[in-house]
């Protein structure tokens, strides 16, 4: 069924007339429909970016080509080198905030397709063996109906491989207090998948990179189980 045969913008639903050009011929051929007005409201992360986390580098908050946040992570022996790098596509501005809220919380799955070309480019650029989604708890997954990370991987034309699951509250509380403080493990490896990790180059995909701590927790588990490298791609930063 060709559900999006019509010429309407995925993000604002406005009819896109022939005089308003699509953003590019390439986008059109991949059937991604974003009008010029919406495309203008999306701001690509451009200029000099942090080599580690992909943010735009600001004077006074950098050392060489790395930002202070990343320096702190990399100076901590516990987290050093776990996440090779993060690549993000857009600034997390108010417009994208609204789009992501509609996508994730209202459950408008189709919106992922608006970013299909950019996601494909970034995930291919990461040269990975596996595209891995960040898991949701069962309650969250039921509530939303789908996992936004998986939706983004599918929109990129990839095949999401679920390696991780969320640690349940009970399981976490069984740990000793010291464990919880020093190793607040939120993820675990899905037992059946342990063997698929060995020697693999893994890309974690998520909607937003905020502090980078969720992605690093996931990377830690994957590396501990033999992943060769772990990097991440997010829609917004």
């Amino acid at each position: 069924m060709d559900l999006f045969a019509g010429e309407y913008c995925l993000l604002c639903n406005a009819e896109v007339g022939h005089e308003t050009s699509w953003t590019s011929v390439f986008l059109r051929s991949s059937r991604t429909q974003v009008c010029a007005v919406c495309q203008n409201k999306l701001k690509l992360l451009e200029g000099e970016l942090c080599q580690r986390c992909g943010r735009v580098l600001e004077p006074g908050y950098r050392e060489g080509r790395v930002c202070y946040d990343c320096l702190r992570w990399e100076n901590d022996p516990e987290w050093q080198g776990l996440l090779s790098f993060n690549a993000s596509i857009y600034h997390y501005n108010n417009f994208l905030k609204e789009v992501i809220a509609r996508f994730k919380y209202r459950g408008d799955y189709a919106l992922a397709m608006a970013f299909s070309a950019q996601l494909r480019e970034k995930t291919l650029g990461a040269e990975a063996d596996l595209l891995v989604p960040v898991p949701l708890s069962e309650e969250r997954l039921y509530e939303r109906g789908f996992n936004q990370s998986e939706a983004l991987i599918s929109a990129a034309g990839g095949e999401p491989v679920n390696l991780l699951s969320r640690v349940h509250g009970e399981k976490q509380s069984k740990k000793t207090r010291a464990d919880r403080i020093h190793l607040p493990q939120v993820f675990q490896i899905i037992p059946d998948m342990v063997e698929s990790i060995q020697g693999k180059r893994i890309v974690l995909v998520d909607d937003i990179y905020t502090t980078g701590s969720t992605l690093r927790h996931a990377a830690k588990m994957l590396r501990a189980h033999g992943a060769e490298s772990v990097c991440s791609v997010t829609l917004a930063r």
Binding site: M1, L3, F4, A5, G6, Y8, N13, R102, R106, G107, D108, Y109, A110, L141, Y142, R144, G145, F146, N147, E150, A151
Partner: peptide, 25 residues
Amino acid sequence: EARWFSVFPCARCGENCLYCRQCLM
């Protein structure tokens, strides 16, 4: 109108679920 409908792999029913984008909010 077909343009208001889309499909997603639904965790609630385990099938490809058709949903309405017009009254989604």
